[in-house]
């Protein structure tokens, strides 16, 4: 039997190499954000001055606030549309155009963003020409673009959760006379709430981080945080960007780890309750 277990040293070597590859760059970035020197790669002493510089960087702060606003709008809208689409995918997959529908859900996961960027821009320009709306580009067009980017992720998370659901609960509610919409709101939604939360969080971070789509869809006065960051790092290293990156990584990591632990505990609790329920029955 012992032959079935892979060799320990080899396993440690592979994983050690893999995880250092994934984490060493980020670690260096964080350490050198506390470097006093303007030359990012030459250590000259500990300092937090680049963090204070961030606070006085008005361009950056304005852009960050706009990005957060767009991310909140995007996450919320993506969850609504994505849940709807995911539900359709999981339950109503017998209609004629279903392959087209599934294709349109799956394609944005892999399609290069430059393609989606130019297509959506041309759509908005054509709409403005023929309908007179939307006037110019800005928060609205970025919002639609980001929703397009995130809907697929939400739809796929939701559809796989909906497929796992035990339909007897919904059927029981139906038998007791609840209307389909009520069943959805009272029974189905709470059951898939975990998927909705992860979909919302994923959409929020995807939107906050998006550069390519935003560059095509933004107009004057709607410069988001990634656009500012990109225009600066294009010129090379910048200690202030290290400080910003560190803050960003810190917030996201705490969020992801906390979310993950919470989900695991919920999962365990649910499994326990299920066992108890089956025992009682």
């Amino acid at each position: 039997m012992s032959t079935l277990k892979p060799s320990k040293p080899l396993s440690y070597a592979v994983l050690g190499f893999g995880y250092s590859f994934l984490y060493l760059p980020i670690l260096l970035l964080i350490v050198y954000s506390f470097n006093e020197s303007k030359l990012v790669t030459v250590w000259s002493g500990f300092s937090t001055k680049w963090y204070w510089a961030l606070l006085e960087d008005d361009e950056l702060i304005t852009a960050a606030l706009l990005s957060i606003k767009i991310a909140l709008m995007t996450a919320t809208a993506s969850v609504v549309v994505g849940t709807w689409a995911g539900f359709v995918m999981a339950r109503l997959n017998r209609f004629r155009l279903f392959p087209l529908f599934a294709g349109m859900i799956n394609a944005p996961l892999v399609i290069p963003e430059v393609i989606q960027g130019i297509s959506l821009l041309l759509l908005f320009v054509a709409m403005e020409q023929t309908l007179g709306w939307p006037e110019g580009r800005g928060v609205f067009t970025i919002w639609i673009g980001h929703v397009m980017l995130c809907v697929s992720y939400v739809a796929i998370i939701v559809q796989s959760r909906v497929r796992e659901l035990n339909r007897s609960l919904e059927e029981a509610a139906m038998d007791l006379g609840a209307r389909p919409l009520k069943v959805f709101c009272v029974i189905t939604l709470p059951l898939i709430s975990q998927a909705l939360v992860s979909g919302w969080l994923l959409s929020f971070t995807l939107s906050l981080d998006d550069l390519v789509l935003t560059a095509f869809l933004s107009g004057p006065g709607s410069t988001t945080l990634p656009m500012v960051v990109f225009s600066r790092v294009r010129l090379g290293l910048n200690p202030e960007m290290n400080a910003l990156a560190t803050l960003f990584i810190l917030v996201v990591s705490v969020g992801v780890v906390a979310g993950n632990l919470y989900m695991r505990s919920v999962q365990r609790k649910r499994e326990r309750e299920m066992q108890l329920a089956f025992k009682a029955a």
């Binding site: 760059p25 980020i26 990012v40 981080d209 990634p226 960051v229 790092v233 996201v252 990591s253 992801v256």
Partner: peptide
């Protein structure tokens, strides 16, 4: 697996930027 996914959640732009300091 969470440790594999964590970088995917953090900013893609930042992760590419991190390599500039290493590769220069």
């Amino acid at each position: 697996m969470m440790m594999v996914m964590l970088p995917f959640w953090t900013s893609y732009l930042i992760r590419v930027y991190a390599w500039i300091g290493i590769l220069k």
